[in-house]
Amino acid sequence: MSTSRRRTLLKVIVLGDSGVGKTSLMNQYVHKKFSQQYKATIGADFVTKEVLIEDRLVTLQIWDTAGQERFQSLGVAFYRGADCCVLVYDVNVNRSFDTLNTWHDEFLNQASPSDPKTFPFILLGNKIDVDGGKSRVVSEKKAMEWCASKGNIPYFETSAKEDRNVDSAFLSVAKLALEHERDQDIYFQTVVADPVPEVEQRSGCAC
């Protein structure tokens, strides 16, 4: 049963500075809703979404975290066992881009994955809709360069408000996570048990 859980549940952590739109992205993806009035996330929030990848039904377990730096202290509890880490920054705020390194390193440090070099990250440059892109300060090129420096992290430019690229970004997340989880299974030589019950119990899925 524990192996089946591992096989179908993918834990995704969403990190990034406060106010870059982590909660908005997550809600847009899971509930297809956008609101101007989100409450600040305290500690961490949690949603699940089922996705079909390569004929396989997997449940994305998305952890939305608080953006304030000091909440990183609590990260160790949430980060462990993650299959993918989504880094989010606001293309209109330089600082949110500059702190990406901290989030990246802090995650690897606290999640302490067995394969820090190859652990799947993904970068989302959010709020590309703001002011028609005029207030943008972080160029796509700069972001791509950063991604390249971190081992070719996939990069998506998104708008949670206009639902641009959100689905494709999270699909990529799911694929990366699935890939990583498979590698982990191989790495730990976990014997595959019957994964069927997982699918049975899910009746009312939102996708």
């Binding site: 049963m1 524990s2 859980r5 409450k39 305290i42 500690g43 961490a44 929030d45 949690f46 609590l74 509890a77 949430f78 066992g81």
Partner: peptide, 21 residues
Amino acid sequence: DYLGVQVAWVTGPWFLSIFMN
């Protein structure tokens, strides 16, 4: 434990916000 759930995942936000929200 069997499910791999840590109580703190849920109760942490409870305490931090003193149950608000």
